[in-house]
Amino acid sequence: MDNLYWKGEIMKKLLLAALALSLSSTAVFAGEAKVSFAKLDNFTDIKAGHEQKERFRERLTEEFTSVFAGFAAKLPEGYQLEIDITDIDLAGDIRPGMTIHYDQIRWMKEIDWPRIQFTYALKNAQQEVVASGKEELRDMDYLRRVRIPSGKTSFEFEEKMLQDWFKHQVVSGAFPSQDAKTLTATK
Protein backbone atom coordinates (compact mmCIF):
# COMPACT_ATOMS: atom_id res chain seq x y z
CA MET A 1 0.00 0.00 0.00
CA ASP A 2 2.81 2.43 0.87
CA ASN A 3 4.47 1.69 -2.48
CA LEU A 4 1.27 2.61 -4.39
CA TYR A 5 0.91 5.78 -2.36
CA TRP A 6 4.44 6.93 -3.23
CA LYS A 7 3.98 6.07 -6.90
CA GLY A 8 0.79 8.15 -6.93
CA GLU A 9 2.54 11.07 -5.26
CA ILE A 10 5.43 10.89 -7.75
CA MET A 11 2.99 10.82 -10.66
CA LYS A 12 1.15 13.87 -9.28
CA LYS A 13 4.43 15.78 -8.97
CA LEU A 14 5.50 14.78 -12.49
CA LEU A 15 2.15 15.88 -13.94
CA LEU A 16 2.28 19.20 -12.09
CA ALA A 17 5.86 19.77 -13.27
CA ALA A 18 4.88 18.97 -16.87
CA LEU A 19 1.91 21.31 -16.64
CA ALA A 20 4.04 24.11 -15.20
CA LEU A 21 6.66 23.59 -17.90
CA SER A 22 4.08 23.67 -20.68
CA LEU A 23 2.50 26.85 -19.28
CA SER A 24 5.83 28.57 -18.85
CA SER A 25 7.02 27.57 -22.31
CA THR A 26 4.10 29.40 -23.93
CA ALA A 27 4.82 32.54 -21.94
CA VAL A 28 8.56 32.47 -22.70
CA PHE A 29 7.98 33.23 -26.37
CA ALA A 30 5.65 36.15 -25.79
CA GLY A 31 6.08 39.83 -25.23
CA GLU A 32 4.22 41.85 -22.65
CA ALA A 33 1.70 44.69 -22.95
CA LYS A 34 1.26 47.60 -20.58
CA VAL A 35 -1.89 49.56 -21.36
CA SER A 36 -2.96 52.79 -19.71
CA PHE A 37 -5.95 55.03 -20.27
CA ALA A 38 -6.13 58.81 -20.04
CA LYS A 39 -9.03 60.28 -18.08
CA LEU A 40 -12.09 58.37 -19.33
CA ASP A 41 -14.41 61.33 -18.65
CA ASN A 42 -12.62 63.23 -21.43
CA PHE A 43 -13.04 60.51 -24.07
CA THR A 44 -15.23 61.46 -27.04
CA ASP A 45 -17.73 58.57 -26.81
CA ILE A 46 -17.63 55.68 -24.41
CA LYS A 47 -21.25 55.90 -23.38
CA ALA A 48 -22.87 52.80 -21.98
CA GLY A 49 -26.14 51.77 -23.54
CA HIS A 50 -27.67 49.14 -21.30
CA GLU A 51 -24.99 48.83 -18.64
CA GLN A 52 -24.10 50.78 -15.56
CA LYS A 53 -21.55 53.48 -16.47
CA GLU A 54 -18.78 52.21 -14.17
CA ARG A 55 -19.24 48.56 -15.15
CA PHE A 56 -19.20 49.49 -18.84
CA ARG A 57 -15.96 51.47 -18.43
CA GLU A 58 -14.38 48.61 -16.52
CA ARG A 59 -15.33 46.15 -19.27
CA LEU A 60 -14.11 48.53 -21.98
CA THR A 61 -10.67 48.93 -20.37
CA GLU A 62 -10.39 45.17 -19.74
CA GLU A 63 -11.30 44.29 -23.33
CA PHE A 64 -9.01 46.86 -24.96
CA THR A 65 -6.18 45.75 -22.65
CA SER A 66 -6.86 42.16 -23.71
CA VAL A 67 -6.64 43.10 -27.41
CA PHE A 68 -3.19 44.68 -26.91
CA ALA A 69 -2.08 41.74 -24.73
CA GLY A 70 -2.96 39.45 -27.65
CA PHE A 71 -0.70 41.52 -29.91
CA ALA A 72 2.11 41.44 -27.37
CA ALA A 73 1.84 37.64 -27.22
CA LYS A 74 2.91 37.62 -30.87
CA LEU A 75 6.08 39.59 -30.12
CA PRO A 76 9.41 37.88 -29.39
CA GLU A 77 10.44 37.06 -25.86
CA GLY A 78 11.40 40.04 -23.73
CA TYR A 79 9.64 42.64 -25.85
CA GLN A 80 7.26 45.09 -24.20
CA LEU A 81 4.49 47.05 -25.90
CA GLU A 82 3.47 50.16 -23.96
CA ILE A 83 0.18 51.76 -25.00
CA ASP A 84 -1.41 54.95 -23.67
CA ILE A 85 -4.96 55.31 -24.98
CA THR A 86 -5.85 59.01 -25.06
CA ASP A 87 -9.27 58.96 -26.75
CA ILE A 88 -11.93 56.55 -27.99
CA ASP A 89 -14.99 57.32 -30.08
CA LEU A 90 -16.94 54.08 -30.28
CA ALA A 91 -18.72 53.05 -33.47
CA GLY A 92 -22.29 54.28 -33.57
CA ASP A 93 -23.98 56.61 -31.15
CA ILE A 94 -26.28 56.47 -28.14
CA ARG A 95 -29.34 58.53 -29.08
CA PRO A 96 -31.65 59.96 -26.43
CA GLY A 97 -35.07 58.36 -26.60
CA MET A 98 -33.83 55.30 -28.56
CA THR A 99 -34.61 52.54 -26.08
CA ILE A 100 -35.65 48.93 -25.98
CA HIS A 101 -37.13 47.78 -22.68
CA TYR A 102 -35.78 50.93 -20.99
CA ASP A 103 -32.22 50.26 -22.21
CA GLN A 104 -30.58 52.77 -24.51
CA ILE A 105 -29.21 51.26 -27.70
CA ARG A 106 -26.14 52.12 -29.76
CA TRP A 107 -27.37 53.17 -33.21
CA MET A 108 -24.96 52.30 -36.04
CA LYS A 109 -24.87 54.80 -38.89
CA GLU A 110 -22.23 55.48 -41.52
CA ILE A 111 -21.46 58.91 -40.11
CA ASP A 112 -20.61 57.55 -36.62
CA TRP A 113 -17.42 55.66 -37.45
CA PRO A 114 -15.07 54.31 -34.75
CA ARG A 115 -11.94 56.23 -33.82
CA ILE A 116 -9.15 55.61 -31.33
CA GLN A 117 -6.09 57.69 -30.43
CA PHE A 118 -3.07 56.33 -28.62
CA THR A 119 0.67 56.58 -28.29
CA TYR A 120 2.87 53.50 -28.26
CA ALA A 121 6.42 52.44 -27.55
CA LEU A 122 7.84 49.04 -28.35
CA LYS A 123 10.87 48.06 -26.27
CA ASN A 124 13.18 45.13 -26.90
CA ALA A 125 14.59 42.80 -24.24
CA GLN A 126 17.30 45.37 -23.41
CA GLN A 127 14.55 47.99 -22.79
CA GLU A 128 15.61 50.01 -25.86
CA VAL A 129 12.77 51.69 -27.75
CA VAL A 130 12.69 50.08 -31.21
CA ALA A 131 9.45 51.69 -32.41
CA SER A 132 7.21 54.46 -31.12
CA GLY A 133 4.56 56.79 -32.37
CA LYS A 134 1.22 58.49 -32.02
CA GLU A 135 -1.76 56.98 -33.82
CA GLU A 136 -5.24 58.15 -34.66
CA LEU A 137 -7.04 55.22 -36.20
CA ARG A 138 -10.45 55.61 -37.81
CA ASP A 139 -12.56 53.46 -40.07
CA MET A 140 -15.03 55.55 -42.04
CA ASP A 141 -16.15 52.46 -43.95
CA TYR A 142 -16.70 50.28 -40.89
CA LEU A 143 -20.20 49.12 -41.82
CA ARG A 144 -19.16 47.90 -45.27
CA ARG A 145 -16.08 45.89 -44.32
CA VAL A 146 -16.09 42.14 -44.06
CA ARG A 147 -15.25 41.23 -40.51
CA ILE A 148 -15.30 38.10 -38.48
CA PRO A 149 -15.71 38.91 -34.79
CA SER A 150 -13.06 37.27 -32.64
CA GLY A 151 -15.44 36.73 -29.75
CA LYS A 152 -12.77 38.18 -27.44
CA THR A 153 -14.36 41.62 -27.23
CA SER A 154 -17.72 43.23 -27.72
CA PHE A 155 -16.07 46.17 -29.53
CA GLU A 156 -15.66 44.39 -32.87
CA PHE A 157 -15.26 47.49 -35.06
CA GLU A 158 -12.56 48.96 -32.85
CA GLU A 159 -10.82 45.61 -32.49
CA LYS A 160 -10.72 45.23 -36.29
CA MET A 161 -9.03 48.64 -36.62
CA LEU A 162 -6.45 47.68 -34.03
CA GLN A 163 -5.81 44.29 -35.70
CA ASP A 164 -5.22 46.02 -39.03
CA TRP A 165 -2.83 48.48 -37.34
CA PHE A 166 -0.81 45.70 -35.67
CA LYS A 167 -0.67 43.68 -38.88
CA HIS A 168 0.62 46.74 -40.74
CA GLN A 169 3.30 47.29 -38.08
CA VAL A 170 4.53 43.71 -38.47
CA VAL A 171 4.36 43.60 -42.27
CA SER A 172 6.18 46.94 -42.57
CA GLY A 173 8.95 45.62 -40.30
CA ALA A 174 8.33 48.17 -37.53
CA PHE A 175 7.41 45.34 -35.13
CA PRO A 176 9.10 41.94 -35.01
CA SER A 177 6.70 39.03 -34.72
CA GLN A 178 6.70 35.29 -34.35
CA ASP A 179 4.08 35.08 -37.15
CA ALA A 180 5.68 37.59 -39.53
CA LYS A 181 5.75 34.93 -42.27
CA THR A 182 2.05 34.18 -41.80
CA LEU A 183 1.11 37.87 -41.82
CA THR A 184 3.26 38.61 -44.87
CA ALA A 185 1.67 35.72 -46.76
CA THR A 186 -1.80 37.15 -46.13
CA LYS A 187 -0.83 40.68 -47.16
Rank of each mutant, 00 (worst) to 15 (best):
R95F: 08
F175Q: 11
L4E: 13
D141V: 07
D141W: 09
K12P: 00
P176K: 14
S22E: 04
P176L: 09
T65L: 04
L15C: 04
F29C: 04
E82L: 07
T99R: 12
K12W: 07
S172T: 13
S154Q: 14
F157A: 11
F43T: 01
A30T: 02
Q163F: 14
G78W: 00
A73G: 11
A72F: 01
F68M: 03
V170F: 08
A20E: 10
Y5M: 09
D179C: 06
A72Y: 03
F155A: 01
S132M: 08
G97R: 08
K53W: 03
T184N: 13
S36N: 10
G173W: 03
P149R: 08
A180S: 12
E63N: 06
I88G: 03
L60P: 00
Y102N: 14
Y102H: 12
F29M: 09
I10W: 04
V170D: 11
Y142I: 06
K7G: 11
A27H: 09
T182C: 04
S25N: 07
A38G: 14
S36M: 00
G92E: 05
E77H: 10
M108C: 02
I116V: 13
T186Q: 15
R106F: 07
K167W: 02
F157H: 15
A121F: 00
L122Q: 09
L14F: 08
E54N: 08
K181I: 05
K39E: 13
P114Q: 02
W6A: 07
V171G: 00
D2T: 09
V146L: 12
N3V: 06
T119G: 12
K34G: 00
L75V: 02
A27L: 15
I94V: 15
Q126S: 15
I94A: 04
D103F: 05
D141H: 13
F68H: 02
E159C: 05
D2E: 12
A131N: 09
P149E: 01
A91G: 11
P176A: 05
F157S: 09
T26V: 13
I83Q: 06
A185I: 03
D45Y: 04
L14G: 01
D103N: 14
M108Y: 15
I105P: 00
D87K: 13
L14D: 08
V67M: 01
L162W: 09
F71S: 01
S154I: 12
E136V: 11
S22T: 14
N42E: 15
A20P: 00
A69P: 00
W107A: 00
M161E: 03
R147V: 10
P176Y: 12
E77M: 10
T182M: 13
V130N: 06
V146K: 15
I46S: 11
E51K: 11
A180R: 12
K167M: 12
M1R: 07
F155I: 01
